[in-house]
Design a binder for these strands. Structure first.
Lengths: 348, 348
DNA sequence: CCACTTGAGGAAACCGGTTGACCAAGACTT
DNA sequence: AAGTCTTGGTCAACCGGTTTCCTCAAGTGG
């Protein structure tokens, strides 16, 4: 095969196949409103293949008002959670004939620039928004210039287009595990206030604690970072007169768990002998912490695929709706959880 | 300001400003080959601003053969190193009027699909390639369909378009630190064979070890992952008759350091009392490991900006060349390094 | 006073696709 | 035999910019 210094264009394919541009376009796009002889159809596909033809996305967008591209907006790529989600989105988009782009909106700080670059300049047909929160600038922007979009992971109440996971179930899974081990005083490190999965996880945690009859369930909020986890852990583990000592912690993110692990060590406590720790989200690093982290694996990849399904459906004219990914959170038992020490066996 | 249900187009701006499309286009693109009255110029800018006008990237690409977009190809987004690089690239691109897209090519496995989606479909003007390695499919693809591109982090020998950091210096920095502390037997966990920064770091490590007169400097290679670091650490720490016991390790990535830390613990050794550990790249998590990790901070952000500078220069017609980011690697001392134990003080 | 330059901007072709309207020729119906 | 479908396509307008000539009026030199 010779080199292809110039991109093959639609006319090139048409000339080579001995048909018109229109026919090639319709055949390659699989349109039904046209009858073509099977052999012509085959010839067109062959020629296109041989020439390595790819339609120019700009020309396509101009003519058909569709770019066949989506963009996923995440609050931070430093959080590997979103990397997994984006992989799911990318693959599913590909299967549906779309390209999924990835953009970091730094928790809303650059959301409008990103919106301009991607939507207003016509680079994408729709947005997968994983960075929503109350007061996010994009919410207002979308109201004024409506564009197909769904919210994933973080829901926007009343939007009717939220794609989420069963985070309530993850709290139950984590808490049941700790309860079975014998823990009766369990702290929860929640995410920042106002962010849906944060609130939901916390509420489910408190509800389940009530059902199980736990003695105390203190909660502290913190960013989804190591720092946030460390600060919150210190707050929860500080000695107090008003309740018994916490023997286990459940965090909202993996980074928080790493921070908590650090803070626990600094306080001279050991995991899991003195404090058990359960994280959220399972990523390779969880297995390499000391001790390896017991965690609730959330269906992040599936969340990405589900969000793309919902968005593409909307782009193709169906009306959106809320979706909950059916895959259940799964407990991954590692070394950071164990039965609590005998009361009095190792007094403070 | 009223809502803008439809995108404003060039003609809209032209009509509103009372001039022709051509004039608006030239004024907004700041072209010199046209004389326009200052007040006309100002009016055009005002109208464009008021209408929130953004040129349609597809139309622009079609007419002018430039998309004003770049793409950064990274081997894995799970490696936070590339996240920092991409942030540098994104910001610098923005300053130069470009949009930087981010794509994961899974170490070359999806490189050709990505190339088709981004380059052949005309979505970007050039590529920032951080995932190069010998035999990478993109190398051949680029030979056949030349497109502006630079290689960053991982160089391609003889390409004459490599943007790299002073990795040799990072080995020296790490090794000097360990030598000063008194270590004389230092192991190195290198990256996979054949990848340039890997080889270069290793060679510089060995060279510097020779200059310092170290007793032994065993090297093991492994992926840039926790797993790779753990396996390599086990190999280096295994007892042997042929050389004294290793008292310190220097790894090629942060994830490797986390893996090594894990393996060291499993072997019943303590950091830094029994083994000192120096990592590469400084990211938030490094400060929250137990113990906090001493590491060589590489100028990742600057690497991203430098790569964009080089690529944009090439797109604008200048011929490419190799660039080394001038920012020096910097040692961040934390708790994972200390003087070695007295010989015999704690025998194996 | 007239040809000529200069300043300010306009007309139209073009980029590479998509799409709805249209058409020729054979098959079928009556 | 004439009209009507159906099959298998084609034609040309259009999407929203950019760019290359043009034009036209006012000023300028001779």
């Amino acid at each position: 095969m010779p080199d292809q210094p110039v991109r093959a264009r639609l006319v090139d394919v048409a000339r080579e196949a001995g048909v018109s541009k229109a026919t090639v376009s319709k055949v390659l796009n699989g349109r039904q409103d046209l009858s073509v002889r099977p052999e012509t159809r085959a010839r067109i596909h062959e020629v296109a293949e041989a020439l390595g033809y790819r339609p120019h996305s700009g020309a396509r967008a101009l003519a058909g008002a569709s770019t066949h591209a989506l963009a996923l907006l995440v609050p931070s790529l430093g959080n590997p959670t979103y990397v997994t989600i984006s992989r799911g989105a990318y693959q599913r988009a590909r299967e549906l004939g779309y390209l999924s782009l990835l953009a970091e909106d730094f928790d809303g700080q650059e959301a409008d620039e990103t919106f301009n670059d991607l939507v207003k300049e016509g680079r994408v047909d729709g947005l997968l928004i994983a960075s929503a929160r109350p007061g996010h600038p994009l919410l207002e922007t979308l109201r004024r210039s409506p564009v197909p979009h769904v919210f994933l992971n973080r829901a926007v109440e009343g939007s009717g287009r939220n794609v989420t996971m069963d985070v309530a179930r993850s709290s139950v899974t984590a808490l049941d595990h700790l309860h079975e081990l014998g823990h009766r005083v369990v702290g929860h490190i929640a995410g920042p206030a106002g962010i849906t999965p944060s609130e939901e996880r916390k509420q489910a945690f408190l509800d389940r604690a009530g059902e199980l009859g736990l003695l105390a369930v203190p909660v502290a909020s913190g960013d989804f970072t190591e720092e946030g986890g460390a600060v919150a852990a210190r707050a929860l583990l500080a000695p107090t007169d008003t309740r018994p000592r916490v023997t286990a912690l459940y965090t909202s993110s993996l980074a928080q768990a790493i921070g908590a692990l650090h803070a626990i060590g600094e306080l001279g406590l050991r995991v899991p002998q003195d404090v058990s720790l359960v994280g959220n989200d399972d990523l390779p690093v969880a297995g390499y912490l000391t001790p390896p982290l017991t965690t609730v694996a959330m269906p992040l990849y599936d969340l990405g695929t589900a969000a793309v399904d919902a968005l593409v459906a909307e782009i193709e004219g169906k009306s959106p709706g809320d979706v909950v990914v059916p895959t259940e959170p799964r407990l991954v038992r590692r070394g950071s959880t164990a039965p609590p020490a005998e009361p009095g066996g190792r007094p403070d």
